[in-house]
């Protein structure tokens, strides 16, 4: 059974199309990441699924209910971590968790929730006195206090330091171990790579690619080879000697990056040439493309075909 089903979703603000014919499915128990630049339509999509916005057209089902009129029944079974939402700064963490928890049918004990987000030491501090990262963790706490079947995380770790990010990744993983479904939006590729069972890449309101992180990376054609040429060496000579390599991206300080579909042969040619010339290639590396490379490739090619994205602000 699927936790979320979206078919032909469309959302327009006047002449602006924020979400355009979007379709995807999130299976029960899976972590699904919507990945995209700011303004790609991720937050609009997630807010429609949460019931915060009405869609223009299309079919949407969340836990079998229509979020447009899911009401109390639906909101009891979902947890929402919004990108922009406040908490009463006058309350302590204990008071806030207790208060927000009191309106759910299946409330988690306060101490358990606070421990899950690692705020035990601050539990009796006023929220107004906490740092941005700590407040974000309270956002997470309030998102899970009702034992939700489905959690929406809209850019959940923005503003976190590295340790806090790893901790909330662990929290998300422990949630899925409980069978909780998670839909998250992020523009951190490592976050999607770390957490998501499947990733959907959104550009200009449409889905341009979807799959597991490995599938997306595997679909990218080429391995990346990069190295630094010594300052006095001749890049032209390299290109002339190895015409098979095709165009080489010229980086700063003599750095060369190129994509290769035959890395073994190309690497052999390059290193042979370098030995012949008596040149040491610094920082020589061969690596599979990261999700970031794939993402950048997808989003730039999509934007080129669509022309300049309009400024809607």
């Amino acid at each position: 059974m699927s936790a979320i089903n979206v078919t032909g979703l469309r959302k327009t603000y006047g002449s602006l199309v924020a979400v355009d014919d979007l379709s995807f499915e999130v299976r029960a128990g899976e972590v699904y990441a919507l990945l995209g630049h700011n303004g790609a339509g991720k937050s609009t999509t997630i807010e429609i699924l949460e019931g915060h916005r009405q869609r223009t057209s299309g079919e949407v089902s969340v836990l079998g209910l229509d979020p447009g009129r899911g009401g109390r029944e639906l909101r009891d079974r979902i947890g929402i971590v919004l990108q922009t939402s406040g908490i009463e700064p006058e309350l302590t963490i204990r008071e806030a968790v207790g208060l927000y928890g009191s309106c759910y049918r299946r409330t988690r004990p306060i101490d358990e929730v606070v421990a899950m987000v690692g705020l035990e030491e601050k539990v009796d501090h006023r929220i107004g006195s906490l740092s941005g990262g700590q407040r974000r963790r309270i956002d997470l706490a309030l998102g899970i206090v009702g034992r939700p079947d489905l959690v929406f995380l809209d850019e959940p770790t923005t503003g976190f330091d590295a340790a806090a990010r790893r901790r909330s990744w662990d929290l998300v993983r422990s949630l899925c171990a409980d069978g909780t479904t998670v839909l998250l939006t992020t523009h951190y590729l490592d976050e999607a790579e770390q957490l998501a069972d499947r990733v959907g890449v959104m550009v200009n309101g449409s889905m341009v690619a979807e799959g597991t992180p490995d599938e997306l990376i595997g679909a990218a054609p080429a391995t990346v080879v990069s190295f630094v040429l010594p300052p006095d060496s001749d890049r032209g000579a390299l290109t002339a000697a190895l015409p098979g390599l095709g165009p080489l991206a010229a980086g700063e300080n003599g750095r060369v990056d190129f994509r290769s579909s035959t890395p073994t042969a190309d690497l052999h040619a390059i290193t042979s040439w370098a030995l012949e010339q008596g040149i040491e290639l610094h920082s020589l590396s061969v690596h599979r493309p990261s999700l970031e490379d794939v993402f950048l490739q997808l989003s730039t090619s999509e934007q080129t075909t669509n022309g300049e994205p309009e400024d809607i602000g």
């Binding site: 949460e50 915060h52 979902i78 919004l82 922009t84 406040g86 309106c103 759910y104 309030l142």
Partner: peptide
């Protein structure tokens, strides 16, 4: 509370808005 985003947060909970 609306500017702080507190109202929006409550709107996402099962608390009836009338309450």
């Amino acid at each position: 509370r609306r500017d702080e985003g507190v109202l929006k947060r409550w709107r996402g909970t099962p608390l009836p808005t009338s309450v």
